[in-house]
C-alpha cells in the first residue's frame, strides 16, 4: 500500500511539471532567423544579427530581444545579450564567444503586448 501511495505521489509531482523547455515556443507567432554568424569563429566578428518577422512575413521592429548562449557542459557561464529597435526586422548586437566548441543560442523576442516567441540555434564555434 505504501508503495502505491509513493508511486501515486511521484506521478502527481511529475504531472505538476508545467512544461519541458522546447527548442521553439512562445505565445507570439513570430519567426526568428539567425543571419550571422552562421559559422562563428573565436577571432571573427563579435556581433550577432537576427531577423524577426511576423506570421505574414512582415519585419518586426518593436520587439525586445534577450539572447542567451549556452555551452553544452553543465555549469559553464552563458553569454547574455539584449537588443531592441530593429531596422527592417534586423537586430544586430554585440555577442562575444568565450570558448570554441558547441553552443546553443536561445533568442527570445518579446512584443510590446508581452507575447513572445523563442528559437534555439545550434552553432559550432571554431
Amino acid at each position: 500500500m505504501k508503495r502505491i501511495v509513493f508511486i501515486l505521489l511521484l506521478l502527481l509531482v511529475v504531472g505538476c511539471r508545467q512544461s519541458q523547455q522546447e527548442e521553439t515556443g512562445g505565445t507570439a507567432d513570430l519567426t526568428i532567423e539567425l543571419l550571422a554568424p552562421l559559422q562563428p569563429t573565436m577571432d571573427g566578428s563579435s556581433e550577432m544579427s537576427v531577423r524577426v518577422t511576423d506570421a505574414a512575413g512582415a519585419p518586426v521592429n518593436d520587439a525586445s530581444l534577450s539572447i542567451k548562449g549556452d555551452m553544452t557542459h553543465a555549469g559553464m557561464m552563458p553569454v547574455l545579450a539584449d537588443a531592441s529597435g530593429g531596422e527592417d526586422g534586423l537586430y544586430t548586437f554585440p555577442f562575444a564567444w568565450t570558448m570554441t566548441g558547441d553552443w546553443i543560442v536561445t533568442v527570445r523576442a518579446t512584443l510590446p503586448d508581452d507575447t513572445w516567441a523563442e528559437q534555439q540555434f545550434d552553432l559550432t564555434v571554431k
Partner: peptide, 22 residues
Amino acid sequence: LYDGFTGPRLAPTNLATVLTWV
C-alpha cells in the same frame, strides 16, 4: 532524477547535470 527526466534538455539549466558534473 525528476529534473533529469522531465526538465530542460539543456545541460547548464538542468539540476541533474549541474549538480552531478559541477
